[in-house]
Structures are given as C-alpha cells and as structure tokens.
Amino acid sequence: MLGAVASSGFGDLEREVMAHLWDAGGPLTVRQVHEHLSGARSLAYTTVMTVLDRLAKKGVVRQERADRAYRYAPVQTREEMTAALMLDALGATPNGPARDAALVHFVGRVGPEGAAALRTALERAGSGS
C-alpha cells in the first residue's frame, strides 16, 4: 500500500491532507485526518501519518502534542501561503537570496496595489497567527 502510494508520489495525497487541514479550522489528529480521507477508499493509517510527517518536515504544518496524541495544523492559511508564494515568484520577498535567482519568467506582473496587498498578507502571516 505504502509502496503503491510512493511510486505515484505523495503529491496528490499531500494536497488533499493540506486542503482538509485548512478547511478544518483547528488542529487535527492523524486519526481524524485518516477518517476523513479514507471514507471512499482504503488508505492505511500509517500512510496518513507519513504524509503529515512529510508536511511537517516541509514546514507547512505544525505538530503539537495534546493528550498523548499529536495534532497537526497548517502554519499559514491558504491565502497567506498563496500570497507569500506569489511574492517569492515576483522576487519581492524581503530577504536577499531571492534576488539572485532566475526563478521565473513572467508574462504578467503586479501593480503597486497588488504588491501591497500581498505584502500585508505576508506580514500577517509573519507576525505569527
């Protein structure tokens, strides 16, 4: 089971788990995520655990311990993460290294008010929600 998932990549599952965590509005245990996702298919508990662990390693999910069980919550809201990503794509992030890379090639660019809105979202995220 785990092998089958690994060969096709964890990508889709990671996205589903993130989507569920964002929708949940509060920290969830592995069991809760597993119950939600395995409704229509057979999905191993350990697979969900692995996916949550991977997400935590990527720094997008926070692991907190409560009542002998780990709970997981997104570090940023979906909107904050999107805003941060777009700023990164624009090379407009405050930290220097972003300036050197030929990360992307644009067709469209962002106006001043758009960049300001993105930055506000980023600051909200940075101030630790």
Binding site: M18, V60, T82, L85, D88
Partner: peptide
C-alpha cells in the same frame, strides 16, 4: 552559490505550488 541557492529556492517553491494548486 547561485546554482545551489536557486535550485533550493525553486524546489521549495515547487513544493508549495504543488500543495496549493487546484486539483
């Protein structure tokens, strides 16, 4: 340095894009 930093940054960016992308 440039090669290493931009690869790291792109890998991270790609990870996040994958998580946020519409299914």
């Amino acid at each position: 340095g440039v090669l290493l930093r931009s690869r790291r940054r792109r890998a991270r960016h790609a990870d996040l894009v994958d998580l946020l992308s519409r299914a």
